[in-house]
Design a protein around this nucleic acid. Sequence first.
DNA 1: GGGCGATTAGTTGTGCACAACTAGATTGTG
DNA 2: CACAATCTAGTTGTGCACAACTAATCGCCC
Lengths: 144, 144
Amino acid sequence: MEPDLTLEHQLCFALYAASRAVTSTYRPALEPLGLTYPQYLVLLVLWESDGSTVSDLGRRLHLDSGTLSPLLRRMESGGLLERHRDSPDGRLVTVHLTDAGRALRDHAEEVQRCLWSLSTLSPAEALSLRDLARRLVAEPAPTP
Amino acid sequence: MEPDLTLEHQLCFALYAASRAVTSTYRPALEPLGLTYPQYLVLLVLWESDGSTVSDLGRRLHLDSGTLSPLLRRMESGGLLERHRDSPDGRLVTVHLTDAGRALRDHAEEVQRCLWSLSTLSPAEALSLRDLARRLVAEPAPTP
DNA sequence: GGGCGATTAGTTGTGCACAACTAGATTGTG
DNA sequence: CACAATCTAGTTGTGCACAACTAATCGCCC
């Protein structure tokens, strides 16, 4: 059977375009806060788990130290967080929010809301989209 | 009501993670062909509409010339396509596949297949995910 | 205690994305 | 025709992603 190679039929392109559209929608809300979208994701983790290590952040966000190290350096020099090698395990770097980093949480709800201006999806459809996207990423359960 | 700021509850993160997971899954199939994922998307358009202009490609892929110009230059120097300013309109640059660029189409079906190794989504769920993602991106119909 | 594989964070280099800008061609309007 | 607004592709600069690598530290096993 002839496979359909049309761009518009590709699941991969639909996800790629949707992801970029969402970050574009967030940008005008984040830019006045001095944040990029990946930096906002780091804050989401830290608001939840302040004091995470770099590798903790990497596990949550599926990013490696090659991405996180310079990103965290920029956030540190922007005064949003501090990195310390203060664990008994001398390899670990813990990341702690500053007051400025914690304060940005008050704007997060407003940032979230701008996603709805992008689309006409119903709340149920958005939930369905989120769960399907999460199941696509979830690795199959390991066989013990 | 308290908004849920947990990373895992965010639609934006689910899409961001899913999109990156998909391109990671494609990478081992594309790398032996000498392609990156965005370059593969350009080929998808050109296999369908050879001779498109740079702005045609930009409209289809939602990318601007700042992204496409260097990307097309790399593909041109890789022998996959040629750029010509041969239109009656002297501003337009048309992009034509070479034989090498056309030949890669034979590998595309195999590239597509590796997406299924990523997930346990049924074909119907994958269709649903694709259509929800597309509706998220689709701008509302203009009011005439 | 000595040594070795594994882990952690960081650096380097390449290739997107995207904002801001530029140069050149075209189109519309007086 | 003149010429200002528009359109097209390209360049520059910043910030991710990610592969490949390094340095420092840890755990383990003898």
